[in-house]
């Protein structure tokens, strides 16, 4: 019995070594072997924790979450397993599940309670629920150096939502109707707008030349007028659509920033 305990401790030391040299595939292979012969609940928790951790490093989020969730609350690894699993759920886009599980859970250690509030506030921003964000942010104790910079950063991100003025698709379309490319200028895409103006202009003057020299029924006029009309209409539609693309880009960029910010204290506390 004593020999087995020794052996498991050696295995865990070796597993830790594999983590330090980033040999995650080898670590997972070893865990697979150990799981076949490990039946004590505490040891199974430890193996599930390492399985979750190694898969987290390998960005196998679903396997990592499932493994972390098998770690029982009696394990000393449980707070880390629980919080990292919830972060990974939020990262995978399952905001609601992450939120519901986090809000129900209480922690004995103050720093984990603070981290819970911080992660909840991050999920609020991902959901664009600014009222809930303010409520969670107001509950910060604010006395943990591992979190304070990220809390400030998340507050800055929340401020960006308030100051960001959304563009009008109608105005972009009208501007492009008046002057090809003007809608793109309005959206801040100067190069794209200039290219549109030049291309439409090139087809326009060639259509005009064909009309002047060969008349309205000439092939030259029909070809260039069609190209001009196509480019002109496509540009109006492109400007209207551009507003939606711009919004999506802003939202994606914000989500990325929020998730990175939510991740920082997790790395600081658990790595």
């Amino acid at each position: 019995m004593y020999a087995r305990a020794q052996s498991f401790e050696q295995d865990m030391a070796f597993l830790q070594h594999l983590k330090e040299i980033s040999a995650y595939d080898e670590g997972l292979f070893l865990i697979g072997q150990l799981q076949e012969n490990t039946f004590a609940p505490g040891r199974r928790d430890t193996l599930n924790f390492y399985k979750g951790k190694f898969n987290y490093y390998k960005k196998n989020l679903a396997v990592s979450i499932a493994s972390f969730d098998q770690v029982s609350s009696l394990s000393p690894f449980w707070p880390e397993a629980f919080i990292v699993a919830r972060f990974q759920q939020a990262y995978s886009g399952d905001h609601q599940q992450a939120y519901d599980q986090l809000i129900r859970q209480d922690f004995d250690e103050a720093i984990f309670s603070e981290l819970k509030l911080f992660e909840l506030a991050g999920i609020d921003l991902l959901n664009r629920d600014f009222d809930s964000y303010s409520k969670h942010a107001a509950q910060y104790a604010g006395n943990f150096h591992q979190l304070s910079a990220s809390q400030k950063r998340l507050d800055d991100v929340a401020g960006l939502f308030a100051t960001n003025k959304s563009k009008s698709p109608l105005l972009a379309g009208v501007l492009s109707t008046v002057l090809p490319g003007a809608g793109k200028f309005y959206l801040g895409r100067v190069g794209e707008g200039a290219m549109t103006l030049i291309t439409t202009g090139i087809f326009g003057v060639q259509a005009w030349e064909g009309y002047q020299k060969d008349g309205i029924n000439s092939a030259r006029f029909i070809i260039f007028a069609s190209l001009f009309s196509g480019t002109y209409i496509a540009n109006i539609w492109g400007s209207v659509l551009g507003v939606k693309i711009l919004r999506n880009e802003f939202n994606d960029q914000m989500n990325e920033t929020i998730l990175v910010t939510m991740h920082v204290p997790i790395r600081l506390l658990f790595d």
């Binding site: 090139i202 003057v205 060639q206 005009w208 030349e209 064909g210 020299k213 030259r220 260039f224």
Partner: peptide
């Protein structure tokens, strides 16, 4: 043939 715009813009491009 006097198609200056076509020659310059399409041809050269």
């Amino acid at each position: 043939k006097g198609y200056y715009f076509t020659g310059t813009l399409s041809g050269v491009a």
